[in-house]
Structures are given as structure tokens and as C-alpha cells.
């Protein structure tokens, strides 16, 4: 087992990143609590950050890590706005269930 893990390649990191992304996607589709849905988008951001840092290490170029800083910025901005919206919606309906707002959908 140690033999098999002695060479950690870019593929390993990409697989972990893809798995985290897919788990976040499934969580976003499955959960009905609005806060958890936004937490799942943060998980997808995290997966993208892992892929970027792995690529940056692979090509020995720090620009990938600089992009992770921008990911953090966008994640922070998104969290602030999304949580503000969620607090607003919670005040209107007294529930976090996303299906309470299902009349906003098309048809």
C-alpha cells in the first residue's frame, strides 16, 4: 500500500478535487435547507481551489495560487450576500426550506 502511494501525482489531486466538487454538487441538489445549499457551493469553491493549487505546483508557477486568492474573495463576497438574502427570506416565511419559495420558479 505504501508502495502504491509513494508517487503522488497530479492525477491524485485532481481526483480528490473532482470528488469534492461532485459531493458539493450532489449536496446542492439534494438538500432543502438554504444555508446548507450555499455551504455546498463553498465546498465546490474549495474543490476548485485544490485543483488550482495542484496545477500551480505541477507547472511550478505561482499564478494558480494567486487565483485561489481571488476564489477566496469571491467566496467571501458570495457568503456575505447569500447570508444577507437568507436572513431576509427567513424573516418573511420563518423557514429555511427552499421549497417555501417554489412559486418563484418558472411555470
Amino acid at each position: 500500500m505504501i508502495e502504491a502511494l509513494s508517487h503522488i501525482s497530479l492525477t491524485h489531486y485532481l481526483i480528490v478535487s473532482a470528488a469534492l466538487f461532485v459531493i458539493g454538487l450532489v449536496g446542492f441538489l439534494v438538500r432543502r435547507n438554504m444555508i446548507i445549499m450555499f455551504l455546498c457551493t463553498e465546498l465546490m469553491f474549495q474543490a476548485a481551489a485544490i485543483a488550482m493549487v495542484a496545477f500551480s505546483r505541477f507547472s511550478l508557477d505561482v499564478s494558480g495560487q494567486v487565483f485561489v486568492i481571488f476564489i477566496l474573495t469571491v467566496a467571501a463576497a458570495e457568503a456575505a450576500l447569500a447570508l444577507g438574502l437568507i436572513v431576509l427570506l427567513y424573516r418573511r416565511r420563518e423557514t429555511l426550506n427552499s421549497e417555501a419559495w417554489s412559486e418563484m420558479r418558472e411555470s
Partner: peptide, 29 residues
């Protein structure tokens, strides 16, 4: 709360998600 306990369409979501994972990991390999 009830909406925290019962997931929405877990079968379809898992199917879609892991088809994506299969494509992604195939590309990675």
C-alpha cells in the same frame, strides 16, 4: 426540521453527480 431530514430526489442527484465524476476522472487519468 422536516426539510433537513428528508432529502430531495437523492437518486437522480447522485446519478447526475457521479456521471460527472466519471467523466472528470476519466479526463484526469
Amino acid at each position: 426540521a422536516e426539510y433537513d431530514v428528508n432529502p430531495r430526489e437523492p437518486g437522480i442527484a447522485c446519478g447526475v453527480g457521479f456521471i460527472l465524476l466519471a467523466v472528470l476522472s476519466n479526463m484526469a487519468y
